[in-house]
């Protein structure tokens, strides 16, 4: 915007001032205002080009995730859908999962990678305690999600096979020092250790949280710190916190040599990874992709926690391109690349 203003303001007006006095000045001012307005409109329309688009019926819109597991699954969806159907997948700029979920419900996006536990707590504002006995968490959230009004109806597709739940983790060195293997092993030594995790682990609502955890196991930590999720591993590495709450499929656990302590009394609920889709997606794409649901469910059950940890480790720590990692894994399973052979 600066340049436009400069060009218009720089040349003629100065002459005009000498000649015309007051009148010229007012004209200049008008000129400048116009230039500014023009600049604003230009850059806005420029901006709009990025966000707009769509409209094409056979396009599946996904807003990308902010961490590798989510990005990887999204890219695999694109590979599978574009190879096996006539539909296209448009992966847009990344955003926070909560925002992405809101866009799916609104209908500006169609699909995202999510977890049954997240859908339950963060999105539907329910709690594992609300799940009736004998019903799995996965089935329960799907039936709850189906109760939403027509426009915002979403559901989870087949489970991917990963359980990306919370896991209590300590650096290997501390695990060795105190002989820690399970969360219960922490009980006698907790008062010498500082616990630290991201903020949402400390909310008073919900049951898979800090206060319920320490009450459940009878842990009495020396201190509890709430830290930004992106600085958590740095804090562990630098010894500012000793015990943390990690995610079980995170490649970073491997990088920072964190030992995951077994949740021996089964405190944490499951967080089964699954695609979350708008319920009306399959009807809408009936023409271009009659088989869409089966294609998306090709991802069902093809991962384990260890496989996902290795895949995200390859991306986050070995810096391998996400696209290559996704393609290699899918073709190693024979899910893509068959038609070309």
């Amino acid at each position: 915007m600066g340049e436009i203003k400069n060009v218009r303001g720089g040349k003629s007006p100065r002459g005009a001032k000498k000649l015309g006095g007051g009148k010229g000045l007012i004209l200049n001012r008008l000129n400048r205002a116009l230039a500014l307005l023009l600049a604003a409109v230009l850059s806005l329309s420029l901006a709009a080009c990025g966000g707009g688009g769509g409209g094409d019926e056979a396009v599946i819109v996904i807003y990308d995730g902010q961490y590798s597991e989510m990005k990887l699954i999204h890219y695999m969806v694109k590979l599978l859908v574009e190879e096996h159907t006539d539909a296209k997948v448009e992966i847009r700029e990344e955003m926070a999962p909560v925002n992405s979920y809101n866009e799916v419900v609104k209908g500006t996006a169609d699909l995202m990678n999510s977890y049954d536990g997240t859908l339950l707590t963060t999105f539907l504002h329910l709690d594992p305690a609300d799940v009736p006995a004998g019903v799995s968490l996965y089935d329960f959230v799907n039936s709850e999600a189906a109760k939403a009004e027509e426009k915002g109806r979403v559901r989870l597709l087949d489970k991917l096979g990963i359980n990306n739940t919370y896991a209590i983790a300590v650096p290997q060195q501390i695990a060795d020092q105190y002989q820690l293997n399970t969360v219960s092993d922490l009980i006698p030594v907790a008062d010498q250790l500082v616990f630290g995790a991201e903020h949402d682990f400390f909310t008073e609502e919900g049951s898979a949280k800090y206060n319920p955890l320490v009450r459940f196991y009878g842990l009495n930590f020396k201190d509890a710190r709430q830290i930004d999720i992106s600085l958590k591993y740095t804090a562990v590495e630098s010894g500012n916190i000793d015990v943390t709450c990690a995610y079980s499929t995170d490649g970073l656990n491997k990088k920072y040599q964190l030992k995951i302590l077994t949740d021996d009394r089964a405190f944490f609920p499951e967080y089964n990874g699954a695609l979350l889709a708008r319920a009306d997606l399959f009807d809408r794409l009936r023409g271009a992709a009659p088989d869409l649901e089966n294609v998306l469910n090709m991802l069902g059950g093809i991962f384990t926690d260890e496989i996902m940890t290795d895949l995200t480790y390859a991306i986050d720590v070995d810096n391998r391109p996400l696209e290559t990692v996704a393609e290699e894994y899918l073709s190693s399973l024979g899910l893509i690349g068959q038609a070309a052979d």
């Binding site: 909560v98 504002h125 609502e205 709430q226 830290i227 930004d228 600085l231 804090a235």
Partner: peptide, 18 residues
């Protein structure tokens, strides 16, 4: 962000847990 309290604690917790 670095575990030192203030009103950010509530704000960050609220933003990330919706």
């Amino acid at each position: 962000m670095i575990g030192l309290g203030g009103l950010g604690e509530l704000i960050y917790a609220g933003v990330s847990s919706n």
